[in-house]
Design a protein around this nucleic acid. Structure first.
Lengths: 211, 211
DNA sequence: GACATAATGTACGAACTAGTACGTTAGTCC
DNA sequence: GGACTAACGTACTAGTTCGTACATTATGTC
């Protein structure tokens, strides 16, 4: 027997690798052109495998999109797991959390685009499993709010989901509506030169509202 | 000659009427299914005229979408022209303006959807003419900011376009991301029972940030 | 009322697009 | 080393979709 590395050589059969490659390409294609605009043939062509495999693993174009969406949400969850702001005082914690959301959205425009696309399609591809994913994010905010209220620093009529909405709306808008905003106001919301200003502004908005 | 009303009878030839009807139907279709998802044949079918007319007036599917988008922005402009908040004191004025934006976005979900769709397509259908349309909105905010600063009520480092972004992001998100939010948090952002709460929250956010 | 032209209708086609029937190869288990 | 199955490739098709060639009708003008 010839020497064989632990990972199969080059083009051996590897279920997970093939699946992952299809999902990578499909994510880019769907995010780039929307659900209806994306072409199954184009996705297949950019893969090292063929269209047949795409149907073998994901059944249909719609099945592929669902898989792409679920994987994108899962990636967010994993990234957010690392966040720990419980050691900061409430005001610093909520500002930090807002900034992390800001950074994260900016770093993942494809995810934002997929969410926009899914909303155009009225959320009909959102499985029930996704609900659990974002629960930790709200719980984290809820802990901060509670601590802030107990310390007498925060107003006591703010709901965690609503605050999450406030933060998300600002961060999402900056990425999602970049192009129309640019056309209307000749201002690139993602211009690096404006980044710090927008980041600080978000923190100010959130903190001022709460205190 | 038979009696003839000033407005042509029923199915006479009427350029503007035919154009308007096509645009009405196309607006709904594009907003509902996205640019690529919309079907030219479906649009034509829901019109009292034929597909031929659609190409006669708008040249192509893309030309039709551009016309739909421009008309949608023009409608916004006309609606906003009626707004007058210059007689209110700065704090009341900015809150009122935020609430008007809130109301307006809620009342025109199709417009919000078209904007989302256009952003997915990187704003490539936005003509230069649109830039002028939103200028008045920013000027109005600028006047309020100026008055607020002069009265010593507002902080002095806030840009009008940025404040407009803060307000828009909140109002747009509520409509645009309704479906994914519902799936993730089981909360309908457009639930009438929550409307007043979200409207007040927006005003609070803006006013607290500025003062 | 004849003419010119704008507005409209019909029928069709070329290209695309999601999906599949059918055959082949690699790995695994005994 | 042979049988079994999961993974993969090729070639094709039925239906769709944007767009157009060509014919027709209404309307204003002289």
């Amino acid at each position: 027997m010839a020497a064989r590395p632990a990972t199969p050589p080059d083009r051996s059969r590897d279920r997970e690798r093939t699946r992952a490659e299809i999902l990578d390409v499909a994510t880019r294609e769907f995010a780039s052109r929307g659900y209806s605009g994306a072409r199954v043939d184009d996705i297949a062509e950019r893969t090292r495998t063929t269209k047949r495999m795409l149907y073998y693993y994901f059944d249909s174009k719609e099945g592929l999109f669902v898989a792409v969406l679920e994987r994108a949400y899962a990636a967010i969850r994993d990234a957010e797991r690392a966040v720990d702001v419980d050691h900061l005082d409430p005001v610093a914690a909520i500002r930090r959390l807002a900034e992390l959301t800001f950074d994260h959205h900016e770093a993942h425009p494809d995810f934002i685009r997929l969410v926009s696309i899914e909303n155009i399609h009225r959320g009909e591809h959102m499985g029930d499993s996704l609900a659990a994913i974002n629960a930790p994010a709200v719980e984290r905010i809820d802990r901060i709010l509670r601590r802030g209220r107990e310390a007498g620093e925060f107003r006591d009529d703010v709901d965690a989901v609503d605050l999450h909405m406030l933060i998300s709306s600002y961060c999402v808008f900056r990425v999602a509506n970049r192009h129309t905003w640019q056309a209307l106001f000749e201002r690139d919301l993602l211009d690096p030169a404006l980044r710090e200003r927008y980041r600080t502004m978000l923190g100010d908005v959130v903190v001022q509202y709460l205190t």
